[in-house]
Design a binder for these strands. Structure first.
Lengths: 211, 211, 211, 211
DNA sequence: GATGAATGAGCCTTCATTCAT
DNA sequence: GATGAATGAAGGCTCATTCAT
């Protein structure tokens, strides 16, 4: 699985060695800075942390938004990759939950991931949605496996699975520093995902919908 | 439901009629603008939408942050009030779920509520935390009733309840325009909240934790 | 000697009792505030300290500049008055020096007086220069007396006397908190003023010019 | 007289040619504008006079206060340098008085110098006080030489010397356009500085204190 | 006549982006 | 291809002054 960041556009000149290094370092640093300081962090700060002139940032990413997008894409790609790995290394019974835990435990990225996806939703660039599509395929596989194994309710589909993941990130972000509460909150989501039929019908909340 | 905008500070002189009108309008507009455009929206934009000079905004709220806080407090107060009403008008079996639905259905506020609580967590002003405390009491009552009625798992406490609400807002925000997925996602959370014992122990996701 | 602040313009309506009180209080407060905080102090701050609405300030003084000018005029008038008193109560040998000391010792006003005169120089309003003229007459009398008494060099005239006073204020302001240095600096000026002939000729600083 | 604008900080990279030009021009213009319009002059005005965008000002001086300080430091440094030159080129009998005349004759700087020292007193930044210290050493040398030569009263020390210089600037500023008065006023100060013993004792202004 | 809310011009500062070196 | 200086459009906030109560 190559971590090649060169955009796979045909005809794109291969970058010079230092240029490729700079681009990689920039993405690394940008992710760290945006995660730590929020999307509002200045491009200059990123350039400084990367030991690079400001103009170099703009040579690689013509716009701040483009940089944000590239960071997001990289995240999605990484997640997809880890998802694939889990699907391969773990049985279908556990893989989906393992993936959830993996995402939710990425403490520094928690917030960032949520924010990233949210922004992605707003700003659907082609590239982004391509990376999103790849992640979607992975999630499809994981979900399908779990449902076949009977550990996840059958009425679930991928869109809401993503949303649940995002929402749970937010939820845990909100419980930072309260591990007991976080543990219980995660249990709520986990149990909600488990195999049971429907309950989707009607707002009537009486009685348990998992038979 | 009083729409009384007078701040409940004891020694504060009652505002002049026009001033009170402006203050109210500003809060209204600010909530709308911040909700639509995010926290980064400019104070000038708010002033313009409120048909008011920029200085008027700063007369009422000495700082942009203060304005944000006031908007947030108003939201929390409104929610607390609606929670109280539900607790009074609805049986304990339904009240908590009704409150959830009520919050989650407030389409324009969805995003805003989440952001608000998040910001509140960061910026715990006295006023904010007071309003938050009031809401907390309401949630305590609702949760307690639901647990006594046996419709919500007994191991839940208020902190995670709030977080779950916030996270679910985010989740639905992410599913805007996909009503079917949203319905299913809500079902997941609802079922996760239902009465069952524990499941908090260990990461073992095999088998259902609701006996 | 009345401290009547009513402008002596013929045909001016006599102010209502409270209005006169407000005007007086405003001048008092304005002098204090401008002295303490500098000319940049806001009119609102002055209004607040005077327990008066902001509009009241502008009713009495149509402009911030007008208020500054009024404060300055009051200062000049007060100084002229004290100068007259000294001329009457003290012998010509001491009166001028006593006046100097009196001015220089007005600790809180030191700075203010200098600044005031400077601003006055820039902004020569009719009123200001009238008050300045009155003070000039007093100085003329004091200087004349001292020269006749032979305690001040004969080549001095009023313009430079004023300037020396202003400059000495500044000088002492700069030595605030260093009483020993201030004492010596005042001695320098005092000795420079004493009776001696000329020294005005040429820049040749060799030898003492006081024979 | 080096007009080297490079800050003498060790590890600071040498500025690019155009940057150095702009920095120098900015200092020049800022001194002129602040002198003419007072410290309240807007940074935009300075930028405009320097044919530079506003952001360029803030690139070179991160704060308006920093710009003011830089202007002040430059002044102090220039004065110290000229003082040193005078001490070297002129005999001790004349050097101090020559320095006084030099400062007092710098027409455009007159006011500025006073204001600068005053502000320096208020805002003792490290850099400022360093430049002030350098100037202090020069004054010490000049004063010492003059006292040894017997042309200045022995009881004078540097602090009051500075203050006298500042005050005299103010004095002359006040006599702008009245050269005859200015000449006489300068004579007063000069004679006050001349060799004589004490007179510091007591407020008794009778009789000449120079024996 | 007093009050204080409203106003808009202006100030300092930041930031994404372009240009000369 | 990299660098960092320059740019100007905002943004938050203040203040003298006007207007409605």
């Amino acid at each position: 699985m190559t971590t090649d960041q060169t955009p796979p556009v045909a005809g794109a000149k291969p970058l010079r060695a230092d240029a490729r290094r700079n681009r990689a370092r920039l993405l690394e640093v940008a992710e760290a800075v945006f995660t730590a300081r929020g999307t509002g962090a200045s491009t200059e700060e990123i350039a400084r942390h990367a030991n690079v002139g400001i103009a170099t940032v703009f040579r690689h990413f013509p716009t701040k938004e483009a940089l944000l997008e590239a960071v997001l894409v990289r995240r999605l790609e990484r997640l997809a990759e880890e998802g694939r790995r889990l699907a391969a290394e773990t049985g279908p019974t556990d893989a989906l939950f393992a993936f959830f835990d993996l995402v939710l435990d990425q403490s520094p990225v928690k917030n960032a991931f949520a924010a990233a996806l949210a922004d992605a939703g707003v700003d659907v660039r082609a590239a982004t949605s391509e990376a999103g599509r790849a992640l979607g395929q992975v999630l499809t596989a994981l979900l399908d496996g779990a449902q076949r194994a009977g550990v996840v309710r059958r009425d679930l589909e991928v869109p809401e699975l993503t949303a649940i993941l995002v929402g749970t990130c937010r939820m845990l972000e909100h419980l930072d520093g309260h591990p007991e509460s976080a543990k219980r909150a995660r249990a709520v989501v986990r149990d909600g995902l488990r195999a049971c039929t429907g309950s989707v019908e009607g707002p009537s909340p009486h009685g348990h919908s998992c038979p």
